[in-house]
C-alpha cells in the first residue's frame, strides 16, 4: 500500500507516476550502459595500441556485415547451430534417461558409477579424435562425439534429481492409480524440471564450445571451420565477428526460448512480490 500525506499531493503524484517507469527501465539501462562502457574501452584500447591482431570494434562490425552480405555468415552459423541442436537433444535425451535410471536403482548406480566418473574425465579432444578415427570424418561422428562429451554431465545432474524425488507424491499417485503417462507428466517431470534446466543451461554453453573444436578438426563448414580458416590468415577481426555473431544467437535463444519456457514451467512457485 502506498501512503501519501495530504498537502504534498501534487508533488507525490508526479514522483509516483515517474519512478515506476524508471524502475522498470533500470535493468535494461544498466545492461546498455555496461555494454557501452565495454565498447568504449575496447575502442580506446584498440586506438592506443593499433595492430592487425587487435582490431577496433568498428572493423569487427564491418567484417560481420561483409560476411553477412555474402551469405557466408548465415551458412556457417546455420551449420554450427544445427550441430549444436542435434548434439544437445541427443545428450539431454540419453543423459536424462541414464541419469534417472541410476538415480532410481541403487544397484545399477553402484555398478555404473565408475563408468560415469571415467567418461566425465576423458578430455573432449580425445573423444573427438577417437570418434573421427573410428567412425570417419562425417557428421554422425561429429555430433556423436559432442553428445558423448556432454552425456556424463547430464547423467550426474539428473541422477541427483532422481535421488531427490519426493516419495510422498509417488505414494499419492499409487493410491489414486495414476497411469504411467500421468506419473511421468505430473509427478516425475515437474520434480526433475529444475535439474533438467540446470543441465540444459550448462549443457548448451559447453556443447557449442565443443562443436567448434569438432568443426575445426574434421568438418568443412561451421563457425569452427571458419575460425580455423581465419586463424591461418591471422584475421582477428573475422574471428571476433564469427564469435560475437554466435554469442548473440545464443543470447537470443536464452532470452526468447529458454527464459519464457522456464517462466511457464515455474509459474506455480508464485510470483515475487
Amino acid at each position: 500500500m502506498r501512503q501519501e500525506t495530504t498537502g504534498e499531493g501534487e508533488h507525490a503524484g508526479r514522483t509516483t507516476s515517474f519512478s515506476p517507469l524508471l524502475r522498470a527501465l533500470t535493468p535494461g539501462l544498466t545492461i546498455a550502459v555496461s555494454l557501452l562502457v565495454l565498447y568504449l574501452s575496447w575502442s580506446f584500447a584498440a586506438a592506443a595500441w593499433p595492430s592487425r591482431a587487435f582490431p577496433p570494434p568498428d572493423r569487427v562490425w564491418q567484417t560481420l556485415l561483409n560476411e553477412a552480405a555474402s551469405g557466408e555468415l548465415a551458412y556457417h552459423l546455420g551449420a554450427t547451430l544445427a550441430r549444436v541442436a542435434a548434439s544437445f537433444i541427443l545428450a539431454m535425451a540419453i543423459g536424462s534417461a541414464i541419469g534417472i535410471l541410476l538415480g532410481t536403482y541403487r544397484r545399477a548406480d553402484q555398478f555404473f558409477n565408475a563408468w560415469v566418473i571415467l567418461f566425465l574425465n576423458i578430455p573432449a579432444l580425445v573423444i573427438i579424435v577417437l570418434a573421427y578415427i573410428w567412425f570417419g570424418l562425417n557428421e554422425v561422428a561429429a555430433i556423436g562425439a559432442v553428445a558423448v562429451n556432454k552425456i556424463p554431465n547430464v547423467i550426474v545432474t539428473m541422477r541427483e534429481g532422481a535421488r531427490a524425488l519426493d516419495r510422498r507424491y509417488g505414494e499419492m499417485a499409487f493410491v489414486y492409480r495414476f497411469s504411467r503417462l500421468d506419473r511421468f507428466r505430473h509427478i516425475l517431470l515437474p520434480q526433475l524440471q529444475p535439474y533438467f534446466a540446470a543441465a540444459s543451461r550448462s549443457g548448451i554453453a559447453l556443447i557449442w564450445k565443443i562443436v567448434l573444436v569438432v568443426e575445426l578438426l574434421g568438418r568443412s563448414n561451421g563457425v569452427g571451420f571458419q575460425i580455423y580458416l581465419y586463424f591461418q590468415l591471422f584475421d582477428v577481426a573475422a574471428i571476433l565477428a564469427y564469435t560475437l555473431a554466435f554469442v548473440a544467437i545464443m543470447l537470443l535463444i536464452e532470452l526468447l526460448l529458454v527464459q519464457p519456457f522456464e517462466r511457464h514451467a515455474t509459474r506455480w512457485r508464485g510470483r515475487p512480490a
Partner: peptide, 9 residues
C-alpha cells in the same frame, strides 16, 4: 494423508 500432498505444480 497427514499432509495435504497436493502437487505444487
Amino acid at each position: 494423508f497427514q499432509e495435504p500432498t497436493l502437487l505444487p505444480w
